[in-house]
Write a protein that binds this DNA or RNA. Structure first.
Length: 478
RNA sequence: GGCCCCAUCGUCUAGCCAGGUCAGGACACCAGCCUUUCAAGCUGGCGACACGGGUUCGAAUCCCGUUGGGGCUACCA
């Protein structure tokens, strides 16, 4: 079996395209075969080389692998033209000498009468002899495919059997008057050439499929199996657009989502393996994937669910998997050149905070205090502590207690803090909370004793001393 | 307008094809537990078969219609 993902490089890789690519890959993996990447750049004006690279990069980042390509559709134009010529020769297509203006006018007239213009009802194709005579005389023409005069039916594994009555079908252009092939001709030619067996693409092509079926038949090529994926909607239930949030894969990457998480989320959008399975490894998805379980209805892309899935991957992945993805975000918060000697501390810190983060950006932010020589404390957040006149000296005692510890572990640190609390007659919490503030300038976070150990003895003492000094300088008298 | 497609909690969905479980799960939200705090985790709660007709002892499930969404109707893809 051979599948293809065939984006047109008129824009970046968006979530809809990415999901189509994912389903293609999943089907390929579950059935075995080849996955071909083909860039549909027949519209040269709107195609852009930078976009092609962006699409490939997006797929690579997501972890979608293709076996062949990327092939540029534009490289096949000569072959497509020859196909059109053969169709013309066989009388399966004909030269159309009407100008676009003429057609436009006829269409508008029909519109006024409340009708839809059907080319083949209004314009009798010229006889073959006349066609050749006028062409030889240098008259400009487009090549129009003669649709069969019968209904077209095909089966779609998402929709079931789809029937288009003969009256709804019309002859359509396969070669423009400048000799360039149109999309419909090119896709079919390439799908035939590449021996594609399964065509998975967006819903918007469902109505185009009868044209393609007509072409496949005229070419005497076996029909591939079709599957048309429903649209992905934004939270407003309208087609996903930039107005309502991120739409490109790169945006999601920059927002701090892991590729595995996005892949999982996108796979679940319109497909479900049943049995209430949601979080799956790629291998599990490949094993569980069947086209029969793809939904026909459009679905809203839920950012909250993606965030949750991302959080699950953030806490579930190994540090080895996680760290490379985190790197760019560390750089963004000024932690780009931490030196190898800090790797251990960094990993401990990441490990401590990963269950608290939803995105890589969150995580990078949380880790910042571990690598700052001193922290800025927020006066308002510290109001409570500033009112406690005994606190600076208690923290001083804590510094001494920590300094004298022979081994610096969560247990020994906890013991030291608790015994000091008992000594000075306060609850442990009365020392725990200011210590957390001292070390992280935050009022909440991981278990304090884990935090102290991850911070390290030297840095902990330094922050504690700084914080005590800050409190002495900013007291609130009561 | 014509043709084609779609319709279960706010969202993603299971169930539909082979009618018969309090319509199940997840996200979000709310509450409780855990706890030095915040998360995570655990427990519970809230919440849906778009509407109207049929067929049937019985309909989310089958049929028809309505409404609402979407696509195509290009010498765009």
């Amino acid at each position: 079996m051979r599948v293809r993902f065939a984006p047109s490089p008129t824009g970046y890789l968006h979530v809809g395209g990415a999901r189509t690519a994912i389903y293609n890959e999943l089907l390929r993996k579950s059935l075995g075969g080849e996955f071909i990447l083909r860039i549909e750049d027949t519209d040269q004006q709107r195609s852009d080389a930078a976009m092609i690279e962006q699409i490939c990069n997006g797929l690579s980042w997501l972890g979608v692998h293709w076996d062949e390509g990327p092939f540029l559709q534009s490289q096949g134009v000569e072959r497509h033209r020859q196909t059109a010529a053969a169709l013309l020769q066989d009388g399966k297509a004909y030269r159309c000498f009407r100008t676009p203006e003429e057609l436009d006018e006829a269409r508008q007239d029909a519109q006024k009468r409340g009708e839809t213009l059907r080319y083949r009802d209004y314009f009798e194709p010229a006889t073959k002899e006349e066609q050749e005579r006028r062409a030889a005389a240098g008259e400009s023409f487009a090549v129009r495919f003669r649709m069969p005069d019968s209904e077209i039916r095909f089966s779609d594994f998402v929709r079931g059997d789809v029937v288009f009555p003969a009256e709804a079908l019309d002859d359509f252009i396969i070669l423009r008057s400048d000799g360039s092939p149109t999309y419909h001709l090119s896709v079919v030619c390439d799908d035939v050439e590449m021996r594609i067996t399964h065509v998975i693409r967006g819903d918007d092509h469902l109505s185009n499929t009868p044209k393609h079926v007509g072409l496949f038949q005229a070419l005497g090529a076996p029909l591939p199996v079709f599957g048309h994926l429903p649209l992905i909607l934004g939270p407003d239930k309208k087609r996903l657009s930039k107005r309502t949030g991120a739409t490109s894969i790169e945006e999601f990457r920059d927002l701090g989502f892991l590729p595995e998480a996005l892949y999982n989320a996108l796979a679940l959008l319109g497909w479900s393996p049943g049995e209430d399975r949601e979080l799956m490894t790629r291998q599990e998805m490949e094993e569980l994937f069947t086209v029969e379980r793809i939904n026909a209805g459009a679905s809203v892309f839920d950012r909250d669910k993606l965030s949750w899935i991302n959080a699950q991957y953030l806490s579930g992945s190994s540090l080895d998997q996680l760290m490379p993805h985190l790197e760019p975000f560390l750089a963004e918060v000024g932690l780009g050149d931490l030196g190898d000697d800090q790797t251990g501390r960094l990993e401990r810190a990441v490990d401590l905070h990963r269950t608290r983060a939803r995105t890589l950006g969150d995580l990078a932010q949380m880790v910042v205090p571990y690598f700052r020589p001193s922290l800025d404390y927020d006066l308002d957040l510290c109001t409570k502590f500033r009112k406690q006149s005994q606190l600076p000296q208690q923290l001083g005692a804590l510094v001494e207690g920590f300094r004298n510890l022979e081994s610096f572990t969560a247990e020994t640190v906890e013991q030291a803090l608790r015994s000091l609390a008992e000594e000075v007659g306060v609850k442990a919490g009365a020392l725990i909370h200011p210590t957390r503030m001292a070390l992280s300038s935050a009022k909440a976070g991981p278990s304090l004793f884990d935090l102290v150990v991850a911070m390290g003895q030297e840095a902990s003492l330094r922050h504690l001393e700084n914080f005590a000094a800050f409190l002495r300088q900013n007291p609130i008298e009561e």
